[in-house]
Design a protein around this nucleic acid. Structure first.
Length: 111
DNA sequence: TCCGTGACCAGAA
DNA sequence: ATTCTGGCCACGG
Protein backbone atom coordinates (compact mmCIF):
# COMPACT_ATOMS: atom_id res chain seq x y z
CA UNK A 1 0.00 0.00 0.00
CA UNK A 2 1.29 3.43 -0.86
CA UNK A 3 1.09 6.10 1.73
CA UNK A 4 -0.48 9.02 -0.08
CA UNK A 5 -1.21 10.82 3.13
CA UNK A 6 1.19 13.44 1.86
CA UNK A 7 -1.77 15.04 0.12
CA UNK A 8 -3.23 15.86 3.49
CA UNK A 9 -0.07 17.67 4.47
CA UNK A 10 -0.16 19.62 1.23
CA UNK A 11 -3.74 20.67 1.89
CA UNK A 12 -2.80 21.86 5.36
CA UNK A 13 0.26 23.72 4.10
CA UNK A 14 -1.74 25.54 1.46
CA UNK A 15 -4.40 26.55 3.91
CA UNK A 16 -1.87 27.88 6.40
CA UNK A 17 -0.11 29.75 3.61
CA UNK A 18 -3.40 31.48 2.82
CA UNK A 19 -3.52 32.81 6.34
CA UNK A 20 -3.16 36.62 5.99
CA UNK A 21 -0.47 38.48 7.88
CA UNK A 22 -1.53 39.75 11.28
CA UNK A 23 -4.03 36.92 11.71
CA UNK A 24 -3.89 33.59 13.47
CA UNK A 25 -5.83 30.37 13.10
CA UNK A 26 -6.35 27.20 15.08
CA UNK A 27 -5.57 23.57 14.35
CA UNK A 28 -9.21 22.57 14.65
CA UNK A 29 -10.27 25.33 12.25
CA UNK A 30 -7.84 24.05 9.64
CA UNK A 31 -9.00 20.50 10.10
CA UNK A 32 -12.61 21.65 9.86
CA UNK A 33 -11.83 23.65 6.72
CA UNK A 34 -10.47 20.50 5.18
CA UNK A 35 -13.74 18.81 6.00
CA UNK A 36 -12.96 17.67 9.52
CA UNK A 37 -11.92 14.42 7.92
CA UNK A 38 -8.49 14.80 9.41
CA UNK A 39 -8.10 15.15 13.12
CA UNK A 40 -6.82 18.42 14.49
CA UNK A 41 -3.80 16.52 15.80
CA UNK A 42 -2.77 15.80 12.25
CA UNK A 43 -2.48 19.51 11.60
CA UNK A 44 -0.01 19.85 14.44
CA UNK A 45 1.87 16.83 13.20
CA UNK A 46 2.07 18.39 9.74
CA UNK A 47 3.38 21.59 11.28
CA UNK A 48 6.09 19.65 13.00
CA UNK A 49 7.17 18.22 9.69
CA UNK A 50 6.92 21.64 8.07
CA UNK A 51 9.30 23.17 10.58
CA UNK A 52 11.61 20.27 10.27
CA UNK A 53 11.58 20.47 6.48
CA UNK A 54 12.02 24.26 6.41
CA UNK A 55 8.89 24.70 4.33
CA UNK A 56 7.39 28.10 3.62
CA UNK A 57 4.56 27.60 6.06
CA UNK A 58 3.83 30.23 8.72
CA UNK A 59 3.30 27.72 11.47
CA UNK A 60 3.68 30.53 13.99
CA UNK A 61 0.24 31.75 12.93
CA UNK A 62 -1.28 28.46 13.97
CA UNK A 63 -2.24 28.09 17.60
CA UNK A 64 -4.59 25.89 19.55
CA UNK A 65 -8.25 26.60 20.32
CA UNK A 66 -7.29 28.56 23.42
CA UNK A 67 -5.02 30.83 21.38
CA UNK A 68 -2.08 29.46 23.32
CA UNK A 69 1.28 28.96 21.64
CA UNK A 70 1.45 25.29 22.44
CA UNK A 71 3.92 24.48 19.70
CA UNK A 72 6.42 27.24 20.34
CA UNK A 73 8.78 24.68 21.79
CA UNK A 74 8.89 22.82 18.56
CA UNK A 75 10.29 25.77 16.65
CA UNK A 76 13.98 26.23 16.06
CA UNK A 77 13.93 28.56 19.03
CA UNK A 78 11.08 28.61 21.57
CA UNK A 79 10.88 32.38 21.32
CA UNK A 80 10.78 32.52 17.55
CA UNK A 81 7.05 31.91 17.42
CA UNK A 82 6.23 34.82 19.68
CA UNK A 83 8.78 37.01 17.94
CA UNK A 84 7.25 36.35 14.55
CA UNK A 85 3.73 36.98 15.82
CA UNK A 86 4.68 40.27 17.43
CA UNK A 87 6.55 41.21 14.28
CA UNK A 88 3.24 40.98 12.42
CA UNK A 89 1.40 43.11 14.94
CA UNK A 90 -0.05 40.30 17.03
CA UNK A 91 0.21 40.77 20.78
CA UNK A 92 1.41 37.74 22.65
CA UNK A 93 1.34 37.52 26.42
CA UNK A 94 2.13 34.55 28.62
CA UNK A 95 2.43 32.35 25.53
CA UNK A 96 -1.11 33.30 24.57
CA UNK A 97 -2.42 35.45 21.71
CA UNK A 98 -4.09 38.60 23.01
CA UNK A 99 -7.50 39.34 21.49
CA UNK A 100 -7.31 35.94 19.90
CA UNK A 101 -10.90 36.10 18.67
CA UNK A 102 -10.16 39.44 17.02
CA UNK A 103 -7.14 38.27 15.04
CA UNK A 104 -8.60 34.83 14.51
CA UNK A 105 -8.79 33.84 10.85
CA UNK A 106 -11.47 31.35 9.94
CA UNK A 107 -10.27 29.50 6.81
CA UNK A 108 -13.60 27.83 6.20
CA UNK A 109 -15.34 31.20 6.34
CA UNK A 110 -12.84 33.50 4.65
CA UNK A 111 -12.11 31.11 1.84
C1' DT B 1 0.79 -6.16 11.60
C1' DC B 2 0.29 -4.18 16.26
C1' DC B 3 1.38 -0.54 19.83
C1' DG B 4 2.50 3.88 21.27
C1' DT B 5 2.86 8.79 20.53
C1' DG B 6 1.44 13.62 19.29
C1' DA B 7 2.11 21.58 18.19
C1' DC B 8 -5.77 18.89 19.50
C1' DC B 9 -10.91 19.21 20.74
C1' DA B 10 -15.13 18.25 23.20
C1' DG B 11 -17.74 16.27 26.68
C1' DA B 12 -18.31 14.50 31.37
C1' DA B 13 -17.32 14.07 36.59
C1' DA C 1 -14.53 26.45 38.46
C1' DT C 2 -10.91 22.67 37.41
C1' DT C 3 -9.44 17.91 36.06
C1' DC C 4 -9.84 13.67 33.48
C1' DT C 5 -11.11 10.66 29.82
C1' DG C 6 -12.23 9.41 25.13
C1' DG C 7 -11.93 10.09 20.19
C1' DC C 8 -9.91 11.77 15.99
C1' DC C 9 -6.08 10.48 12.13
C1' DA C 10 -1.30 9.80 10.66
C1' DC C 11 3.43 8.25 11.51
C1' DG C 12 7.52 5.59 13.66
C1' DG C 13 9.47 1.43 15.60
Amino acid sequence: MKKEANDIYDAIYQLVRLCPKGRVTSYGAIAAALGAKSGARLVGYAMNNCNKADLNVPAHRVVNRNGMLTGKHHFRTPSQMQELLEAEGIRVENDTVVEFETVFWNPSKEI
